[in-house]
């Protein structure tokens, strides 16, 4: 008979797999000539649509919707770029030195250079290499993504205990999953959690990149993306 305490924890990982959003497409405008403006416009539009998806996804994380609306907002405002970056990293795992921003938008170094995305490219690749080395699987990716949201270190949390409970349940889910799936490596959960500082560092660079794009004012940005950038 399996220990009853383990059942709900495994459930969290399977639930996170079920609520994982559908594939997303960049759909760059074919009538616009290639170059910096087109690449950045495509990425900003993609990010805006992905943010809507992320907000919907967050509501399906067990325990997230029980937080106050203010705390839900604070966590998302802190962690949204980490979640975007983590998704790019996971999509890029099957590729060689290419970043898969969307199913139809993979960028290699040469294309990144010619379209003004080299800084972003260079910032995200180390995280892809680290994830490849760890051979991160989908269950681990969805759990880490939820942990990144719960662990976003927002300065404006009203109910710290409730956020701590969310962190604990996701952390336990990861440990439980690793205990079952990777018993050969008792440090695997720790190794995965140790990627989070690099994720935060990478997301910070990405926010700075898009903030400077906003300040230059050459690329149209949708309202939600602007709102989230301003919250940073």
């Amino acid at each position: 008979i399996p220990p009853p305490a383990k059942k709900p924890l495994t459930k969290i990982v399977s639930h996170l797999l079920v609520v994982e959003p559908e594939k997303i497409y960049a759909m760059p405008d074919p009538s616009v000539p290639d170059g910096d403006i087109k690449a950045l416009t495509t990425l900003c539009d993609l990010a805006d649509r992905e943010l809507v998806v992320i907000i919907g996804w967050a509501k399906h994380i067990p325990g997230f919707s029980s937080l106050s609306l203010g705390d839900q907002m604070s966590l998302l405002q802190s962690a949204w770029m980490e979640i975007l970056v983590l998704s790019i990293v996971f999509r890029s795992l099957a590729c060689d030195e290419e970043l898969v921003y969307a199913e139809d938008y993979a960028v290699d170094e040469e294309r990144a250079r010619s379209s003004g995305l080299l800084d972003l490219h260079v910032a995200i690749l180390p995280l892809v290499r680290r994830f490849k080395k760890l051979r991160v699987d989908k269950e681990e990716f969805v759990t880490l993504k939820a942990i990144a949201l719960a662990n976003s270190d927002s300065m404006h949390i009203e109910n710290l205990e409730a956020v701590q409970r969310l962190q604990d349940s996701l952390h336990e889910a990861l440990q439980d999953f690793e205990g079952c799936q990777h018993p050969e490596d008792p440090r695997r959960a720790g190794k995965l959690l140790m990627t989070l500082p690099l994720l935060r560092q990478t997301a910070t660079k990405a926010v700075q990149h898009f903030y400077s794009v906003k300040m230059q004012g050459k690329v149209p940005m949708h309202k939600l993306f602007l709102e989230m950038l301003e919250a940073k």
């Binding site: 709900p8 459930k11 969290i12 639930h15 809507v52 907000i55 919907g56 509501k59 399906h60 994380i61 067990p62 325990g63 997230f64 919707s65 029980s66 609306l69 203010g70 839900q72 907002m73 998302l76 405002q77 309202k223 939600l224 709102e227 989230m228 301003e230 919250a231």
Partner: peptide, 20 residues
């Protein structure tokens, strides 16, 4: 919340809380 209107609205769109 006024400043972050879209996020606020999207979070308020009803979905029943998930409690496993």
């Amino acid at each position: 919340k006024e400043k972050h209107k879209i996020l606020h609205q999207l979070l308020q769109n009803s979905t029943s809380p998930v409690d496993l």
